[in-house]
């Protein structure tokens, strides 16, 4: 990747990353994060990792970020108010901690041995074929473990986010009990309630 292109992409990445943590409206934070991730995807493609770059754009930006956006809309989040003096102290120490961390990382970066330059990559470097070759031979166990992790995450997400009333009505043993009274007091926030409050 040419140096000028790197500096351009790095400036966009740092500015939009600062936007993620400095904007007060969560939707604006999310849009800044989308810009950062797309910028990183371009950088991955520039580094020869074409497949991973496109997967980043499709999976990260297209799926995970949209999931975040749906949750922000679902919870009807507004812009965050500025906190009191305690929040100010927290912000101060947070910035100091991050500055210490960045200084430490740069010290390690200078001291640790790192590759001096970019090798000439082999042909088809970063293609789907080369990735699959490594993924299904050396990393087969990790690949299967990852599929199990995804299954657990899906089941866990459904179990966690399911409404308590819906959880009660699914099992027949509890369905025989008076669900109507228990169900109405177990739902503090219903969509109808929130819609009525907004209108």
């Amino acid at each position: 990747m040419p140096l000028g292109l790197f500096i351009f992409l790095a400036a966009i990445a740092v500015l939009s990353a600062l936007g993620v943590i400095l904007q007060r409206n969560p939707v604006h934070c999310l849009l800044a994060l989308v810009l950062t991730l797309l910028d990183m995807a371009v950088m991955f493609i520039g580094l020869g990792a074409v497949t991973v770059g496109f997967l980043q754009a499709i999976v990260y930006v297209g799926a995970i970020m949209v999931l975040f956006l749906f949750v922000i809309w679902l919870l009807n989040l507004q812009a965050e108010d500025r906190g009191g003096s305690r929040q100010l102290a927290l912000k101060f120490f947070g910035v100091v901690g991050a500055a210490v961390l960045i200084a430490e990382l740069f010290v390690f970066l200078v001291k640790a041995p790192s590759p001096a330059g970019m090798n000439h990559p082999p042909p088809l470097f970063g293609s789907i074929a080369s990735l699959a070759g490594a993924l299904f031979t050396n990393y087969l166990i990790a690949f299967e473990a990852t599929s199990l992790l995804l299954l657990v995450a899906v089941i866990g997400a459904v179990a966690l986010a399911r409404h308590p009333a819906a959880a009660g009505s699914l099992s027949p043993a509890q369905g025989a009990q008076p669900v109507a009274s228990g169900g109405s007091e177990a739902r503090p926030v219903t969509p109808e309630h929130k819609a009525g409050g907004m209108g």
Binding site: M1, P2, L3, F6, A10, A13, V14, A17, L18, V20, I21, T36, M43, L47, L90, K91, F93, G94, V95, G97, A98, A99, L101, I102, L105, F106, L109, S114, P115, A116, G117, M118
Partner: peptide, 24 residues
């Protein structure tokens, strides 16, 4: 060509920004 250490420096900066976001 951009040397790899530049990418690692950018990575360190972005990581620290993420840490600051979690903290503040």
């Amino acid at each position: 060509m951009t040397p790899p250490s530049w990418f690692m420096a950018l990575s360190a900066v972005l990581f620290a920004i993420g840490v600051a976001g979690v903290l503040i």
